[in-house]
């Protein structure tokens, strides 16, 4: 989950523009992590040293590792370790932004350490779940909104289900508080009722809906037909159903669901306390709208 939130962290730091971030997310699947970036992440080399070795590489026909060893910046076993160890996937996004010329090595060096300190990702004493909870709480502090336990569980599950059913190559932008009229494109709504009431919506433009549905159903769709609509209904219904199961297990709270419906018209009015999370995928932006 760390890769997804690194993108919104970069935005909140004004290190990238939304356009640059969107472009980087689309390109990230083709990015290869470079040894220099890996060395930066492990604090084996400084950004200056990486820049120097990259510069030397343009004059000598040698690999980055060879030059770094010659200069005494890396030991051979460190090179082997960097090549063998699996690195956090948010580095890929950082590498893509370097390749695009948006960030320099020294920008990334600083941002990575800030991001890891901010989220205490190094802290191995915590279970994965509570790390993700903290990540999401931090994510919401940017928008100045305190999350209830239920809302935290809900949002956590949204991101998990996006990873599980659509793909992990997304970046959520910071949640936007919204309590009035809101413009929509193709928008599906499902209501949860019982001890708590929740309106959940998923909204996207037509071409995004087609790509989203193609991934969900593992089929190739080309127009906004009944299968595309059913795919989006099913995703929302599946997500909310799993939320009900979690609420039942964790709080013995029995809730019920209404069937998903497409919103009519171009605007919806949202109650107080609603928020929208734009989620950027390479194929388009999906808006998760929650009134909880």
């Amino acid at each position: 989950m760390y890769a997804q939130f690194f993108g919104s962290f970069l935005l909140s730091k004004d290190s990238v523009t939304p356009e640059q971030l969107t472009a980087a997310i689309s390109q990230a699947s083709e990015t290869r992590l470079k040894l220099g970036t890996l060395a930066l992440h492990k604090y084996y080399m400084t950004a200056e040293q990486v820049d120097e070795v990259c510069f030397l590489q343009t004059r000598e026909d040698k690999r980055f590792g060879e030059i770094a060893i010659e200069k005494g910046y890396l030991r051979e076993e460190q090179v082997d370790e960097l090549l063998a160890v699996q690195s956090p996937d948010y580095l890929i996004l950082g590498q893509t932004l370097i390749d695009m010329g948006v960030l320099s090595n020294s920008d990334l060096e600083l941002l990575i350490s800030e991001y890891e300190i901010f989220n205490e990702i190094d802290d191995m004493s915590l279970e994965n779940q509570s790390k993700t909870d903290r990540l999401i709480r931090n994510f919401f502090t940017f928008s100045g909104k305190e999350l209830t336990e239920h809302a935290l569980m809900y949002i956590n599950l949204v991101f998990n289900n996006l990873v599980r059913f659509i793909g992990s190559d997304f970046t959520p932008l910071n949640p936007i508080s919204c309590s009035e009229e809101h413009d929509i494109n193709y928008c599906v709504r499902q209501e949860i009722h019982g001890e708590i009431d929740c309106y959940s919506r998923i909204d996207m433009d037509e071409s995004t809906a087609i790509s989203f549905a193609s991934r969900y159903a593992k089929m190739e769709f080309s127009e906004l037909d009944e299968y595309v609509k059913a795919s989006i209904d099913d995703f929302l219904n599946l997500h909310n159903g799993l939320f009900l199961v979690n609420m039942s297990n964790a709080f013995s709270m029995e809730l019920s669901l209404t069937p998903p419906v497409s919103e009519e018209g171009n605007t919806i009015s949202l109650p107080d306390g609603s928020f929208i999370i734009p989620v950027i995928y390479p194929f388009g932006t999906v808006h998760i709208i929650v009134s909880l």
């Binding site: 219904n237 599946l238 159903g241 799993l242 009900l244 199961v245």
Partner: peptide
């Protein structure tokens, strides 16, 4: 066949 597999 349901997404809502709660005990109740």
């Amino acid at each position: 066949v349901s997404s809502v597999g709660t005990q109740s």
